[in-house]
Every structure is written in C-alpha cells, then in structure tokens.
Design a protein around this nucleic acid. Structure first.
Lengths: 113, 113
DNA sequence: GTGTTATTCACCCTTATGGTTGAACAAGAA
DNA sequence: TTCTTGTTCAACCATAAGGGTGAATAACAC
C-alpha cells in the first residue's frame, strides 16, 4: 500500500527532526546553503563522527541530499520534503474541523425544530 | 533562556509524533473527539498498558490533555500545540528564502555595475 | 613514495524506547 | 463483602539511539 509507504516516510522525518542537533544542522543549512560535513561539524561540540551519523539520519529521512564532489561531500537542505509534515498536520486539523462542523450542524438541527 | 525551553518542547513534540501508533491516536482523537484510554486501546492490536504509555508520551508533549472524571480518563487532542511545529518549519523556510534572496541580490549587483 | 584532508566503517558503551506481564488502586455494582 | 471495570505502577526484556574511539578508504599535495 502507498499509505504505509507514506507513514514510514513521515516516521523517518519526525524522528530525524526529533533531535536538537539535527534541527540545528537543518537551520545551519538553511542559513548557509550547501556545506561540507566538516564545516557542519565545526559548529558542534561533538566528534565529527557523530555529526556524520546525524547527517546520515537526515539523509535517510530525505531532509538533506549529498552531492559527492571528489572527496568532499556537499550536504544540502531539501525544503520540499518538509511539505510531507505540513500536509499531515493540515490533514489532522481538517479532520478535527470537520468533526466540529458536523457537531455544530447536529446541534443546530436539534435546537431548530 | 526561553529559546532552550522552546527547543525542548519541540523535541518532545517531534519525538511524540515520530511513532506511527501515536500518530494514529492523534488522528483517532481528531475524528472522534475526547475518548477514554480503553476506547483508544480498542483500536490497536496491543496491550492496554502500552497504549497507556503512548498516551502519556503524547501528554508529556502537550499534544493531548487528560480530564479525569471519576475513574475514567478522557483524553483530548490539543490542536493548538501543533502551532509550535508549524512555526518552526515556517521559520526554517523563511531563513532559507532570505538567503536565496540575498544571493539573488548579490548576483544582480555583480551583473549590473 | 609519504603526508594531509575528508569521510565513512566497525565496534563499544550507556541510556532511551516500545513492548510485555502482573500487581495495585479506585470506584461503582451485586 | 466480593466482583468487575478503568487505569496506572513496577519490573523486565529486546532493540534502537546517541555518543565515543580507532582503523580504513580516497584523493590531492609534496
């Protein structure tokens, strides 16, 4: 099912965004544009290795892409991917709104014989 | 700092939304309005206990509130809390857009002496 | 060739997460 | 009182997550 595929994707995105370091990386990329792994790591009090792992998580979630130019890996933010999250929240709110609307309609019927 | 408090909140929300079961619970609540723990658990092939824990995570993230009426606990969705996530994404995108704009401005200056 | 730079890979360690079961508690029903 | 219902608490277990170090790889600089 396509539905499941989408759910899986959403899980990866939320999990990726659920870590403060990874959110910082995303902000950094939004500010500076594509950066090398080393450049990103320089902003954190953490081993390069750990930062590399965080980047892989972001990459796995599709929030970031890697352009490997010779030995440098340029990491770039993929803003488009954020749309998935937007859509999920929007859907949730619309389900919520529809229920309230239906409830309101029901009440109006009852009090308006 | 207030900034840190906000970051912590965001982390909790993302982590809570990072689990498919918990997202299902949120959808369920949006559809049906306030529900009891048992009612929610009935929708999942999982022990009541596990569902109870999931609800506590959602509660901790502020995505849900609990109204304890005698021995029944009514769980209710708090749509307002989703705004935090919206804002974060909106900010990220605006940082991104500002950088592109500045870049564009720079290019225009260079090619227009 | 050797040296340096940029990254990842393979482990290791500690803590968090998601699930289970069984006991405990609280309150109405018989 | 005993029974049932609704819920949490306390362990426990397996696996994932986030951090570290050291070796491996890849490619340029000398």
């Amino acid at each position: 099912m396509v539905e499941q595929e989408s759910q899986h994707r959403l899980t990866d995105i939320f999990k990726a965004a659920g870590d403060p370091t990874r959110r910082s990386i995303l902000t950094l990329l939004a500010q500076h544009g594509p950066l090398r792994v080393t450049d990103i790591a320089a902003h954190f009090d953490m081993s390069l290795n750990s930062v590399s792992k965080h980047i892989k998580v972001l990459e796995g979630a599709g929030l970031v892409t890697r352009r490997t130019e010779w030995r440098e890996h340029m990491i770039e933010l993929r803003v488009e991917e954020l749309a998935h999250v937007d859509r999920w929240f929007r859907d949730l709110r619309s389900i919520w709104a529809l229920r309230l609307e239906a409830l309101d309609h029901l009440l109006t019927q009852e009090t308006d014989p």
